[in-house]
Every structure is written in C-alpha cells, then in structure tokens.
Design a protein around this nucleic acid. Sequence first.
RNA 1: GGCACGGUAGUCAAGUGGUAAGGCCGAGGUCUGCAAAACCUCUAUGCGUCGGUUCGAUUCCGACCCGUGCCUCCA
Length: 485
Amino acid sequence: MTFRLFNTQTRTKEAVQCEKGRTFGTYCCGPTVYGPAHIGNFRTYVVQDTVVRLLKLLQIPYRYIRNITDVDDKTIRNSIAQRQTLSDYVEPWIEKFHNDCKRLNLLPPTQEPRATETIEAQQKLIQTLIDKGHAYVRDGSVYFRIASFGNYGRLSHLDSRILQTQALNSAGRSNDADEYDREQVADFVLWKAYKPTDGAVSWESLWGRGRPGWHIECSAMSHLYLGQTVDLHTGGVDLCFPHHENEIAQSEAAYGAPFVRQWLHIAHLQVEGQKMSKSLGNLLTLDDLQARGYRPSAVRYALLSGHYRQTLNFTFDLMRSAQSALRKINAYTHALLSQSGINEETFEKHTENAVLPEKCIFLGDFFEALQDDLNVPKALGCLFTFMHQNPSPSKEQAKLLLDEWSAALYALGIQYEASDTELPTVEIPNNIQTLAEQRWAAKQARQFQEADRLRQILGENGWNVLDRKDDYVLEPLKGKTPADV
RNA sequence: GGCACGGUAGUCAAGUGGUAAGGCCGAGGUCUGCAAAACCUCUAUGCGUCGGUUCGAUUCCGACCCGUGCCUCCA
C-alpha cells in the first residue's frame, strides 16, 4: 500500500515521496485575511489537513507550512477605509481564522509565516532574479521577465498560448490597463512601487519605496522554511494559473532547482448549484452555517464527502445528511467505548497514537482508499460497512476494533461528540418548561393519558419531548429548528 | 475561441471489461406505555444519447447532447 496523489503537473497519480525518516515538506497557500474565510477556502484546508493527518498516521515526519497573506490590494483598501493601520485591521481576521480552523479540527501548521514578516526574504529573492536577468525594474516596480523562463506554463499546460491569453480576455478584448510599462503583457509584478492609494503601507527597498507583489511571498516563504524543493504544494484550482505558475517561474529561475515535486489542487465548491460568489450573496461562512444550526464538525464532514478533485455542490440537504451520518458514527463510537470500558479522555489519546494503517485488519480497505489519492467517499463507504459488520462486539473485540476505529476517525478529523452536546442550545420558555415538568410527573405516576395530552399541547407549541432513562430533554420541533429556516 | 473536468437510483456519491460500495431521505419491522434514539430488512435489468470494438461495456473507442471550471483578483 503506497500513498499516491494526483499530480496536477503530470496529470497522473504518483507515489508520494514520503520515505520514513526523511522530513516531508508541504506548503499550502493560506488565506488573505480581509474578512472571514468561507467554506470554499476551508475545503482546501480540510483536504490539506487530511494529507497531514495521513502523514502523521504513517509516522512520516513532516513540516507543514501555511502562509498568511496580510498585505495585498484588498487588505490595504479595507484598512484605509476603516482608518486603521494594516496590522490593526488584519489582526482580528487572523484570530478569526485561527478560531475557525480550531472549530473545524484542523491541525495547526508547523509554521504559519506572514507576508509582512518576510519582506526581507522576498526582497532578497527579487534581487537574485534581477541579478540573474529574470527580472527588470520599471518606474520603481520590478517585473518578472517571462521570456527568460522557458518552462513557463507547464503546470497549467498553457504552452505558447500564454502571451495571447494574457493579452486577451474571454471576450477577446485586450487586457491593456496598466500594462504599458512592461516588456511583455504576460510579465507579472514582483515589487509594486508605492502609490498614494497604499496609504501608510510601504517598505524601503533598493528599487524605492513599495510593497511586494502577491506571488513572490509564497516563493520566498516556501524557500525560507522548506528549502529549494517542496515535496507537496497545495491550493485551490484557481491558483493553478497564474499564482502557482508564477511561483514556479520565480523559484526555479532564482534557485535553479525543481520547485515542487507534486502539485495538488482542490476543486471548487458550488452552493445550491450555483457558483459561490460575493455578487450572488452565497458566500457561506462557518458562522452562517452555525446560525442555521449546523455544527462545524458537520461542515467538515460535508466538505470531505465528495472527492477533492470534483466540484462539490454544497447544499443544506448535504449538511443535513452530513449531520445524520455523523450522528451514526458518534453513536457507534459511543457503543465501542462503553462496551470496552475505555473512557473519552483515553480515547482522545488513543487517536493520537493510533495503529499503523498497514497493520489494520478490519479497516485496511479504508486506509487503502485514503492512500489512493484521498478517496474519501470510498473510505466513508468502508467505514459504514465496517459498522454493519461489527454491530455489537464483546469487550475484548471492542478494544481491538477501537484501535483501528480511532485511527480512521483521526484520519478524517472526526472527533467524538457525546450525543448530549448535540442538541442546539435554545432558550426554553417558562410555560413550556412547566408543561414539560407536569408531563414528566404524570408519566412517573403512570398517568399516560394525561402525559400524552401534555405532549400533544407541547407539540402544538412547537416543542418535542425526548424521554430518557431518568429525565427528559426538550427540543424545538422540526420545521421550527434553526436548521430548517 | 482555447484548455480541462463531469453527466451513475428521490438525492449525494464510489466503482469495475463479466454484470452496480456507501451516506441521506423514504417504506416496513424489532424494541421501549406513547414519542425519540438504536438496530434489522427493502429501494437502479440500470450507469447522458447514438454508434463501434468485444463472447460480453456503465467501464475501451468515436460522434453528439447537456452541465461546470479556468483562461482576469479569486480557495
């Protein structure tokens, strides 16, 4: 069983170069922090997280770098609009991002460099490119000379059409705005000369005051933390061109070594069959979904439920089914725990030190699916089949199964959630509470007719009673829950 | 226009040259006073359309139809 991933560049599945003992380097293009990240962004990070979790289970030492873009047109524009310094503006959004990552149970990267903290490295890289003739200065800005880099376009398979395509847009009109100062329209900016619209944001450089272009930060940071060649570089499909293409050009032109061994691109999300975009107003955030009664764990599950190279249509129907599926998984985990006598805390540690995938007897097919280009849908199938095949194990069996079960849950980042915490916390009106208590009393007195009558009244008021062994729980009726808004 | 990707049951979604995993929903059942939960059973002679190759194709080839993405900041 080897870990294989589809490499965008070669368009084939290739064995991941993760020999034991060697540190595996992976870089993920992180967020631009000008607002809350949306679930489309998070699909990328969840997929990257699955790769990292798999490395961990395979006991491959890794360095995982995910950057934060904290300087660009949007962050500058917004910070000025809100009369804040760039860092004051950006800080809360970084905090928000970290919080959301935690809620989605994403493992933290080994390091998370910020663009503004690595300006020096970026400038150094730019100077190297100038020295080697791959870049030139125009009016205080620095541009990459694409004509000097023969391999340009090989990732997105753009070939020689690149000049045409960048000069013309989809409607055939020329993209000539601001292009006049470059040698060729396809040349992209490495360093942007200061403009008044940049406000207080600028750094001194050999070419004058200014700020870095977007692409250069990733080349610089990946070199800084992972060296010349990265084993795996990930990001959303849209980054393939031009961002990653430009990263390749910068890094390889400067360092003369292959930049990336394997490229992994995550397909986009649609929302209810439509492209997710600001103008359609369907950019969903974790908070939006939580307000509708969906837990982050279910969001994570939903994001993983389709193969990462396939566009995923994100719908509320999908969220509902994710939540239901998760409930089953939790119930099964609960059963295994109580059967084996292992408590929750031990289980958490258990997942950290799980068995090696290749040693799995019951869930071997699960890990085989995951290692085959992250076939999560297939792996989930294995998970449910496993549950059906091992419905009520003995104490000893349960312990055995738990070894593998916990490893599988760890791989997918599914945390055990006791069912009690699953109910949304909703304010219960006093009169409803009173009615419910009366019903419970009637039930205890075995006055079932009276109990049923009160249940009926509660139902008419939109509340349902869930009886448990020694108490009861009130929940808003379906159709009135936040989830069904 | 160029380059990619996809069209599998109500829905979401794997998959294979030899006859369709799984999830959700739905139906029936077991169990509890009722309700819920849990568990069990059932649900595609069919895999966009039409041809071709083959003993045999959903899976390979060709044509066509439909959908999506990228080519411009974008996860």
